[in-house]
Structures are given as C-alpha cells and as structure tokens.
Design a binder for these strands. Structure first.
Lengths: 216, 216
DNA sequence: GCTAACTTGTGAATCAATTCACAAGACAGC
DNA sequence: GCTGTCTTGTGAATTGATTCACAAGTTAGC
C-alpha cells in the first residue's frame, strides 16, 4: 500500500462519524458531495481519500451507507476491541479513564496504573487503579494494544520504555516531551499548551494567522 | 504578512520550549542545527520558519538564546497574560482548570462555568465554579480572550454562540462536533477519539501507516 | 432501447510545504 | 589583515497534498 497521509486518516474518522449519523437517520445511500458538505471539505477530497483503499461507490448513485460504514471501520481497524491501559491516574488520566467517547468507539480501558499509594486501590469508572509496580507483570500477561501515558514529563520516557518492552505497539502521550520510540511503535502526542499557543498566535496576528481547524 | 502555516506555528512553540531549556542550562547562543536536532526537524526548516518573521541570527554564530526566546514570545503573543474561561466543569474541564502547563505559559483561568447546580460553588484550584446563567454577564464584564468549551456536544454550539456574542475571539473546543464560528474567531478542536483512531489505523496497517508525530 | 441527469474514480494541474544548495557575513587564529 | 571555518538567510528545486475536470458507469423516465 502507498503511504497514507495523516490528514487522510483524520478525515476518514470524520467520515465514519458522519456516516453513523446518516445511518441513524435512516439514509441508505450518500454521495461524496453530501459527505463533503457535512465535513467541510470537497467531494473530490472525499473520493480521493477513499480511492486509496478501493472503490466503494456506484457511479450515478453514490455510496451505500452501511457498506461504507463497514469499510471505514475495517480500514481504521475498529472492528476489534482494542485494549487500552492508562499510566498515570492524575486529573487527565482519570478524565480519560471515564471518557465515554473511547468506549463507544471500541477502546476498552483494561487497566489504570499510578505510582501514588494513595491512588492505588481507588476505582475509576469500574477500573481499579493498580500500582505502577504491577505494570510490567500485567502488561506482559494481558498484552494491551495501546498505552496512554499521563504521567509527569520526567517519568514519561521510563514508562514508555517499560510498555514497549512488554510489547505495546502504540502510545498516546500527554506528557509535554518528545518520546523516543522505535519505528515499529506508533506514537501520538497531545500537547494542550501547544494548542493554546496556536490560539494565542491567531489572536495576536489577526486574520493573517487564519487557522484551519481540521479536527472536527 | 504572508499566510503562516499551522505547522510552522506549532514548531515555533516547540522551539520556544527548547530555547527555555537551553537558557536554563546557561547556553547563550544556539544554532539552527542544534534547535533542529532537539526538535526532530532540519536546520533549513528552523531557519525557514523563523524567516517568515524576520532575521534574528548572526551568520557564523547562530542565535542569541535570550533574544530569540523574546522574539518567539512576541510572535506567539505570549507577552501578555491571556484570560481563559472554561465552560463545563466535568472531568475534562476540571482537569484543564488545574493543569499547570497553562498557568506556566501565561494562560490565566479566570472563571469556570457549569450548568449542574451540584457543581456550582465548588472550587477548582482556587477558581469557584459559577452557574452557566452568569456566563453572559461575566463574559461581557471581564472580556476573557479564550473560551475552552468542555460541555457535551449537544450544548456546545449554544455555548459558542454565547461567548462569541460576548466578544470572545478564540475558542478551544473539546466537544466532538464542528462548531460554526465567524471567520474572525479562531477555533481549535481537540478530539481524543480521532487521535486514538489514528493509532488504531497505524496498528492495523503496519508500517505503511507510519505516522509522523509532530506535536512534541 | 434511448435520453437526460447524476455521480464515481482518477490522471493532470495546481497549490503548499519542505529540502537543497550556496552566496554572504561573522569570527578565531595567526 | 588574511585564511579557514562556521552558520545564516533565501531563491530554486523537490516533494507532497489538494483541486480540477472529465470519461465512464448507473439509474429513471418515457
């Protein structure tokens, strides 16, 4: 397969969300034009994005909503339920552990870890917080797919190394630093301060800054 | 000014963070090469990014760390303290209200609002949660710069309309939908589910997916 | 079956971002 | 002051992403 741009993958996720809306409303087919209008893009963009993975539409008619929904779930790997562990039960970790959006989309929070003895044993939305000392044992035994790292920056690299050693191949990092990971590990870093500074720049530089918001 | 790409602004934020590290370590000058190595990019990229805003270096020598730090703060609009309001004191709103990273970077959380009477009156890190009924009055009186929206999706557009009517010109949106805002309002949407689905795609599609993580 | 109205899928063209490559300036050593 | 070594700033070239534009299917109406 050709290399797929990250922007394309983001849009596929959006298309899937829109398709689910259309499906709920009982629509059975949809055109690239309708999908584009809903997502703030162009019909050519929609068709190009999909064309990387095959041709799913019928000329003159559009796309079958249930079929395209299924195809997108396949492409995005959302058919299986991914096991997620969260390391760091601070404010952000706790918020994520209870975030409904994850569950809805097939991401199951299998375990939460923290180094603070006061937090260990507490329950977050049905999941007990375990000691960080158990991280290696639990990870090796239950082979989670994705690790969400919400520990302070100084501890993040050590945690990343541990989960990678235990076989985790995808990391979502909330610590404000550049984690070093092997090429075979997928990494996404979310940095709130960076987003806010983008807004600060836009406010300071007026319409020259004009930021494109492609995440919704 | 020419239009500045969002990716450029993100990198400027990163450069600033790195410069602060170098400054703390007592370095007085730095080359585009060193900055690039720290940020996982190339020296040409660093110089090009800076060149949009002026020429701040000395040939043969590099950049003065304190000077470039100051220039970047100016460019990013971080000289003044921005007033931030958070609407929605749920898990994510509460986590953000207490996030140290914001304060450190000059973003002051001036008020938090929620519609749940049980939450109103509670204190989050020194800020009292107010009733959503007060949103318009407080916003009009204290003219905050940035509104962070962490309410459920069905309420987000209404909240956005309210804060825009009251003069807010930048919104950071955590609700999973595309807010409609006038061109003059800067908007950034953060969608956790979208990030996780990016990881899901990478896991399912192996190294073809190879995602570039430019946020750290 | 024929026509008209749609809509896809995709090469070609355009637009945008990154990287290359080098002239020009700055300093250190002598 | 001259030479050698660095490093910037920036047009030119390249690479990558988006948009255009149209041939090729598909359906509905008659």
């Amino acid at each position: 397969m050709k290399h797929i741009a990250e922007s394309t993958v983001r849009r596929l996720s959006l298309y899937l969300r829109f398709l689910e809306e259309f499906e709920a409303r009982g629509h059975t087919t949809i055109s690239s034009d309708e999908l584009a209008a809903r997502g703030g893009t162009t019909s050519a963009q929609v068709r190009k994005d999909l064309s990387f993975f095959g041709s799913f539409g019928k000329r003159g008619l559009g796309y079958s909503v249930p079929e395209l929904t299924g195809r997108l779930r396949e492409i995005l790997g959302l058919q299986k339920e991914w096991r997620v562990i969260i390391i760091g039960a601070g404010k952000i970790g706790a918020a994520l552990a209870q975030y409904e959006g994850f569950r809805q989309r097939g991401f199951h929070v299998a375990a939460v870890f923290d180094s603070d003895p006061a937090k260990v044993g507490q329950t977050l939305d049905g999941v007990v917080v375990r000691s960080i000392a158990e991280l290696e044992r639990v990870t090796t035994r239950e082979h989670p797919d994705i690790a969400v790292i919400t520990v302070p920056a100084h501890a993040a690299q050590r945690v990343a190394d541990q989960v990678i050693a235990a076989g985790v191949r995808a990391i979502m990092n909330f610590a404000p630093l550049r984690l070093q990971v092997p090429e075979s590990v997928a990494l996404k870093t979310v940095n709130m301060a960076l987003e806010l500074e983008g807004l600060s720049f836009a406010l300071s530089n007026g319409r020259d800054a004009e930021l494109r918001d492609s995440n919704s």
